[in-house]
Amino acid sequence: MKLTRLLPLAAIALASCTQKPAATTSETPAASPMTGTWKLVSAVTVTKGDTVKDYPVPNQEMLKILNDTHFAFMRHDLSKGKGKDATYTAGGGTYDFKGDKYTEHLAYLNAREWEGRDFDFTVMFKGDTLIQKGIEKIDSLNINHEIIETYVKQK
């Protein structure tokens, strides 16, 4: 008789013992070292062995912004478009990044004849510094040079 009274209690106790689901993690993949806002601090162009320092340029600044799939860059004068050195350049598109290989698929640029082209680069990271090196070659525009750009990640 005591056993028959314990049987319903045991059934209730057993039913309330459910296995806890495995801990779910909402781990997101580590952010790519490419993502973020980068300020250009140095740029050189090498054409047929001749090296020209293109940046820094007094009274100008340039940023490159990358998310997981797209890049954009803007370069402008700091005098708000006034004066003889007024300039503005902007472009962007999608990119691929694997290991140290970075390819820009340029979809937008104020120099429209550059649009629709791919540019391959090798990148290297040193702390908060990104060094991008590669060839820009467009036969129809007689462009064939190597660029080396150094960026510092902005906080």
Rank of each mutant, 00 (worst) to 15 (best):
K133C: 00
G134C: 08
T94Y: 06
Y108T: 12
Y88P: 03
Y95I: 14
I135L: 09
N110R: 01
T28F: 01
K48S: 09
M34W: 14
K133N: 05
W114M: 04
K39V: 13
K48G: 07
R5G: 08
G93Q: 06
D118E: 09
L40N: 04
K137D: 07
S79T: 15
H105V: 03
N110L: 02
T89L: 10
S26M: 09
L6R: 15
G92H: 11
H145K: 04
F119D: 02
D68W: 15
Y88V: 13
G91H: 05
F125P: 04
E113I: 00
A10T: 08
D120Y: 06
W114V: 00
L63R: 14
K84N: 13
D77R: 09
A15T: 11
D54Y: 03
L66S: 11
M124W: 00
G92D: 09
E61N: 10
Q154M: 13
K80P: 02
H145S: 05
L63H: 12
W114L: 07
L9S: 10
T18H: 08
G49A: 07
I12N: 02
T18S: 15
L63G: 05
G83H: 07
F73Q: 10
L6Y: 15
A107F: 03
N59R: 09
A13T: 15
K82D: 07
L78D: 08
V152C: 04
K133V: 01
Y108H: 08
H70T: 12
M62E: 09
W38E: 06
P29K: 11
E115K: 01
R117K: 11
Q19W: 06
T87D: 10
I138P: 00
A23C: 11
I135F: 02
N110E: 01
D77V: 09
I135V: 15
E149V: 00
D128W: 03
Y55H: 01
Y102Q: 05
V57Y: 03
R5I: 14
Q60V: 09
Q60S: 10
A13I: 12
D50N: 10
K133S: 05
H76M: 12
T122F: 03
E61S: 13
F121N: 04
P33Y: 07
A10D: 08
M34S: 14
T87P: 01
H105T: 05
G127V: 01
I65W: 08
N144L: 02
